[in-house]
Design a protein around this nucleic acid. Structure first.
Lengths: 210, 210, 210, 210
DNA sequence: CATGAATGAGTATTCATTCAT
DNA sequence: AATGAATGAATACTCATTCAT
């Protein structure tokens, strides 16, 4: 193998990105434990040893990806808010669509931020990292909550606890998306689109007849 | 260490249960890959070699637990249906509560049946097992769907696709429960009870003002 | 499994025979290391633990079989001598045929006495056993040697060292038979019969033209 | 223990040789199953894990040694042919001596190529390897057969099937050599030299008086 | 006598991580 | 900075053998 050398700072940054890109795909495909450092470096055309020039250990790259994922999500949510129509319901739709497109267009990141740590125990032992992620998540949730709050004020929405609703919505949507990740959409015969549509319909109108 | 011996058939069954109990806890705590056969047997006061008297391999015990989990869930759901009030909404509540108590009282089973396979590869390579689990899941979903169908007929619920709604509900509730598993309920400051309550409220009445 | 009980002495002997029979087949089929005690006992419809009522350990059964093999061979050789025609060449033929039929009719014993210990190191550490086997082998070789001696006296054979010739013959025939065991007869396209025929022809007449 | 590092390519090749050398001795001494990867690496002053930098698995090193063995044999046979006297009998002698010196000077290789797979299962599961070895063996046999053919044409040898004779000879000599491997030469009181001499005498002249 | 149950000691193989160059 | 080489610590699984009943 040719010796690769990252002379300039940006070249170094580039290598780091390559490694993250490789790890992102592999983690999403095979899980954390089933992805070896060697696999990651091979995909990034580097030697296994080089990995440790860029990351302290295997968990570090996972953490970095996790952060990136939340960055992307936050961006998407903020953008959605700016470009959406005026009514609160419109805005809620826009935010839901943003989250959904986080799932669709950045599936690997969705996988890593929302799913990968489930069924593992070693990821969140670094409490500063946890704190950091929680703060970031709250920012995103706050965006949703404020839309709900606004909707209530404008009398478009029922009187509900905005943050509680935001959190619940988050969980609900995640759950439905995870159905597809678990391949449960396949055997039930519904597309993820149909299920998300159904979710929005239910959430907005309820199932009960008035 | 004293040598333990399971003399009677029922004692043998007991040991098997001990192993499953140990594995259940460990899998839920640390994940599949992070749980070693040694850990399981140590917890069950047996030698690693003894494990293989009771299960063919590590994955076999996981499969057994998975099946047990679904058994429990199915029971709970059927019971809920029989003991609930007459209206469809009551029945839906009862089913939701049943699922919720599956989560509460059998958290480790919930963990294993709903979460553990996420972020891993190896579980679903046995396609007969997958088929079996899918069938079992459909049975549970069908219970929910039929209640919805009945509700529509009785004019208690809006005209919605019963199975699609059931699947969506499943995902939604799972998602909210997973929030707690991910410890996300903690930092948002809501109890899981509150979130599930919020979910039921939203699902029944919708958020939109009429 | 039903509990088997060997009450009478002969029943005990029967069980021992069953075990040897099972081991014989398995050793010949799979080799010593690849045959487990469990396989042997399963084939003999006994529990693994019962094995140790009849043999001290796994090697012991191999040793017993080895002895049995030589018994059979010795018998065959002695019989051959008694039933053969009068000339020394006839007798030599008869003895060769006897050895050959040891291979054909008792292939598993041939395998065990002549081949199995090759490529292993643990069999002959019991020096009394080795001595015993050597003595038995010498008896067989002596049978051949005395026929050769007689042939020389009767002027039917060239003047050759009888015992040296007997030993050489033994090795030569073994070697050709082993060719078939190694499946080398297959790819060369010759049957073992043809090769043994060729061997006898060469040995009697030589290849050199006179 | 000092950490050993193979820096240059040739040093790496050297380490591989060390491993093969260690494995060669051990396989010949103890057999395949009784030789552990740890034994091999210890003898080569490496860690067990390092083994897998050089060979994919335990069987791979056996296969490599097998190939090496046939290389050596083929070389010896070809050389013998080139340096021997003109008569076919001389050539046959030279070839026999070559095979004999393969046994004497490369006993461990002889052991591995001719004996080790006897009494085992697992070696021949790789059919491409088997085919390859058979082809190589046929090449060697063809060398012998062509000398015999020439001898018949030159009227130095009786009319015999050249290839059949070659195969038979191969088996015969192997058999006698194996006698020594089995230590059977010791108790019979003959040296392997004497037996091989006897074999050649018998094969050339026959035992029958004319 | 027979066995079900149990295990200690192995055994090939993997992998995150280190380090001399 | 980059890497080839090396390894310690795991880890699932096997098997001859033991022993209480």
């Amino acid at each position: 193998m040719e010796k690769q050398r990252a002379r300039t700072g940006s070249e170094k940054e580039y290598r780091k990105e390559q490694l993250k890109k490789a790890a992102l795909t592999l983690f999403a495909q095979k899980g954390f434990k089933n992805t070896t450092v060697e696999m990651i470096t091979k995909k990034a055309h580097l030697s296994p040893a080089a990995f440790y020039l860029y990351f302290n250990n295997k968990i570090a790259i996972y953490r970095a990806l996790n952060k990136d994922g939340i960055d992307i999500l936050e961006d998407l949510m903020k953008q959605a808010l700016h470009t959406s129509g005026g009514s609160s319901v419109d805005k809620l739709y826009a935010l839901a669509r943003a989250y959904y497109s986080f799932y669709r267009e950045h599936t690997d990141y969705f996988y890593i931020t929302e799913i990968l740590h489930l069924g593992n125990d070693e990821f969140f032992y670094d409490s500063t990292m946890v704190k950091e992620l929680e703060k970031r998540t709250l920012v995103v949730l706050q965006i949703v909550a404020s839309v709900i709050e606004e909707g209530i004020e404008k009398n478009e929405l029922r009187k509900i606890d905005p943050m509680k609703t935001a959190v619940t919505l988050w969980g609900m949507i995640d759950g439905v998306l995870i159905l597809e990740v678990k391949k449960s959409t396949l055997f039930t015969g519904f597309t993820i689109d149909a299920l998300i549509g159904q979710l929005m319909d239910m959430v907005l109108l309820g199932v009960k007849k008035k």
